[in-house]
Design a protein around this nucleic acid. Structure first.
Lengths: 230, 230
DNA sequence: ACTTACCTTAGGGGAGCCATAAAAAATCCC
DNA sequence: GGGATTTTTTATGGCTCCCCTAAGGTAAGT
């Protein structure tokens, strides 16, 4: 469940927003003043902040700037005046979206969801901001289930084969030397023969290529290494 | 400088967008078909993609989905109908922004800048794909994929050919003697004939020049050596 | 015109790299 | 512990690309 902070002095509007967001299972916190909101935003962890521009005390502009100095939390700016939006956008203070009053609550919810999704996608759960699924020209890789489908048909992959294929498919079109691949898939310090990589490439090709002599997926770059072609 | 891909079938619109973006020092590439755009988006590295929803061939929806499976490049969706935007936003296919035609070019530029700033903020310095690409008058060199495109058409390069061309293109307008080139591309201590360089230059010219007798890219500086002309 | 430097072309030898198979070792799994 | 599976090593044959050569043609400088 995502935590959302609403910084908004008009109580009725704040509560309307909250009600709709809660319908979508968000956990909502409301702050009615700029100072309180800023304080809260800096001290606690929210997944997204909805920030009104016109506030008593510190204004939205300043709050946004200060939050950005510390955090990357997505911020949606709300304003009654379209002109303000344009002005702010021009200043590039780092808000993630802008919405003018009056707006439909469902639109707000939609935008909130979109931003959360994007944020998660980019910053992600963990360092790897990639999909659980990779699909390239008939090759489908399910990373969580560790399964590979070739044109819908499942093929058995051993651990190393799977890791190697996945790494290549996650970085398509990029050429890796055997050394690079070895260091990536195997332990860095492990002393081994990079010929192992060759053998595994062959094994993988047997499973995904129609003609291993003319590979369509894993290409050999002579004198350099291999690449997964897209 | 950021690279932007516009996927748009209406040429006039695409060019209008391009003109405005180039005023802000973006490097703009245009693809007029869905297939071409998708291909390009997957194979090359762009910093942002502007994608029309209505396209001949593969539609924008599908393109967006496919790009997202591999890359996190920011995508701005363009559509003539507000309803489409709402529909797509609901589906959550991973576009980063939506804009309806007609829009003011300056607004587009503003949004592009905002998204690039955000992407950079979230993902980081973007140091990964910095100097991976070289593009000079129709010659495009993808250093990580080790591929060369001449007016959009891919040409096969051997290792030495690629290294030599890349080195010249990375140091344009500078003249290198054959000795310098030989020491640069080949092992320093390897004793070899510098005539080898000549032969490789010839091979490269066959692949990138329209008329090898009047080379437009790799120029011969008589009595000195070669240079890549810009 | 003569010289000098460069381009083009073709081919062969050779080095290095890769694919493949098969054996050996390690690991996993009852 | 023993068989099956996976991983690594080793060996070999083949193939690509590179490098050199050499000779005739072309362009530039004097």
């Amino acid at each position: 469940m995502s935590r959302i902070l609403i910084i908004e002095d008009e109580v009725t509007i704040a509560e309307l927003e909250r009600d709709y967001l809660e319908l979508s299972d968000f956990e909502v916190t409301i702050e009615n003043t700029g100072d309180g909101g800023l304080d809260r935003a800096l001290k606690e962890e929210f997944d997204l902040i909805i920030l009104d521009l016109m506030l008593p005390g510190v204004d939205g502009f300043e709050i946004c700037k200060q939050i950005r100095q510390i955090k990357n939390t997505p911020i949606i700016m709300v304003s009654a005046k379209k002109e303000d939006i344009d002005k702010i956008r021009g200043l590039g203070i780092g808000a993630d979206d802008y919405i003018t009053k009056p707006f439909s609550p469902s639109e707000l919810v939609a935008r909130v969801k979109a931003h959360l999704a994007r944020y998660k996608r980019l910053v992600g759960s963990g360092a790897e901001h990639k999909n659980e699924w990779i699909e390239i020209r008939g090759i489908k890789i399910d990373k969580t289930a560790r399964r590979v489908y070739v044109n819908g048909e499942e093929k058995n992959f051993t651990t190393k084969e799977f890791d190697l294929l996945t790494f290549l498919a996650e970085n398509p079109n990029r050429v890796f030397t055997k050394d690079e691949l070895f260091r990536e898939i195997w332990d860095m310090d492990s002393i081994g023969d990079i010929a192992t990589v060759t053998v595994h490439i062959k094994k993988i090709r047997e499973k995904i290529e129609v003609d291993t002599a003319n590979p369509q997926y894993i290409e050999t770059i002579w004198g350099v290494g291999y690449r997964f072609k897209v």
